[in-house]
């Protein structure tokens, strides 16, 4: 049974992919709108039948007329429901990246030339997010989000836009693919970097050497930040200050103290944890505004300081596959 449902869903997805391929901007066409009676619609149909029988039994033309009016009303609902969706424009505005286990925010814009009523947006395969629009007159943005547990470049699948306008008797809906994809960075995991002086962490060919802290002049002390190499700790001060760790601030720190971040420097054993730790470090250094060098597989970035590059690094972590 379960297998059958899955097969049917697979079949539907294939059919939809052929019928409505992914686009960033969509104006709904006739072939993209589906309408069927809603559950309430079926109940209403039964009520209409009851009134029809009432009219037949009384041989009362006026009651029959009402029954016919109710039936025709049902038909009109299909018409009105269809036009409520027809030519609706939907545009993907933005998709924000997130961390694995977090939610990626998606902004979608609905715009129209005439008033629309009672629209609701959600992802077909992600049930926990829904946005309601009582109506639409001017372009308006809808915020949705979806969750993924694994890192990577994920899509929430098709967007489901549905409406029960005008009387709730019909369900008008469409599944559209706005080509929404979000990067889910590895979930950050705090750790210390493996520090091996003299080792070049894969940057040798570029002629960048890891800074050798021992050769620097002491410029001052500051609070220890988690993750700084142990060699930075001013051990002499620890005793004086009830165990509070202080770091030695070295001269020409800004130029010379860039960390080289690479998989080798992450203490975890398996790749996923290493990537999580990597993600943590990229994040932390970026937040502290400390430039760093980034080495992952064949990707090398020197002096990463701006947010864009850092995002590129995180995205690389999200999609990294161990060769």
């Amino acid at each position: 049974m379960f297998g059958l449902v899955e097969k049917l869903e697979q079949f539907r997805d294939q059919w939809l992919d052929k019928r409505m391929p992914p686009r960033e901007n969509i104006q709904l066409k006739q072939s993209e709108i589906f309408i069927l009676p809603s559950r309430f619609g079926w109940i209403y149909a039964l009520a209409t039948l009851a009134i029809f029988i009432l009219g037949t039994n009384y041989q009362n033309n006026l009651i029959l007329l009402v029954a016919y009016l109710m039936g025709s009303l049902f038909l009109s609902c299909f018409w009105f429901g269809f036009y409520n969706m027809y030519q609706l424009k939907i545009r993907r505005v933005s998709v924000a990246d997130s961390y694995a286990g977090g939610r990626a925010a998606v902004q979608v814009e609905l715009s129209t030339q005439r008033a629309r009523h009672a629209l609701s947006c959600s992802f077909l395969k992600e049930e926990d997010t829904e946005a309601q629009l009582e109506g639409l007159e001017t372009p308006s943005q809808v915020s949705l989000s979806f969750e993924k547990q694994e890192r990577g470049h994920h899509s929430p699948g098709r967007l489901l836009i549905e409406s029960f306008f005008p009387l709730g008797l019909t369900r008008t809906w469409t599944y559209i693919d706005l080509d929404i994809h979000a990067y889910f960075y590895p979930a950050p995991q705090p750790c210390r970097l493996v520090h091996a002086p003299g080792k070049k962490y894969g940057l040798e060919d570029d002629g960048i050497s890891s800074s050798d802290t021992q050769e620097q002049e002491l410029a001052g002390l500051r609070e220890y930040k988690q993750g700084e190499p142990m060699s930075r700790v001013a051990w002499k001060q620890v005793a004086k200050r009830d165990g509070q760790l202080l770091s030695k601030e070295l001269e020409s720190e800004n130029e010379l103290s860039e960390e080289v971040l690479s998989l080798d420097r992450m203490p975890a054993i398996d790749l996923e944890h290493k990537l999580s730790q990597f993600s943590y470090w990229v994040d932390t250094l970026q937040k502290e505004n400390r430039p760093f060098h980034f080495v992952l597989g064949t990707m090398k970035e020197r002096y990463v300081r701006d947010a864009d590059t850092a995002r590129r690094c995180l995205r690389a972590l999200a999609t990294y596959q161990n060769a």
Partner: peptide, 16 residues
């Protein structure tokens, strides 16, 4: 909605 339903109603009433 009711106005749009009228033609079908009339047709049903006359023909059924």
């Amino acid at each position: 909605v009711i106005f749009y339903s009228m033609p079908a109603t009339m047709l049903l009433f006359v023909m059924m």
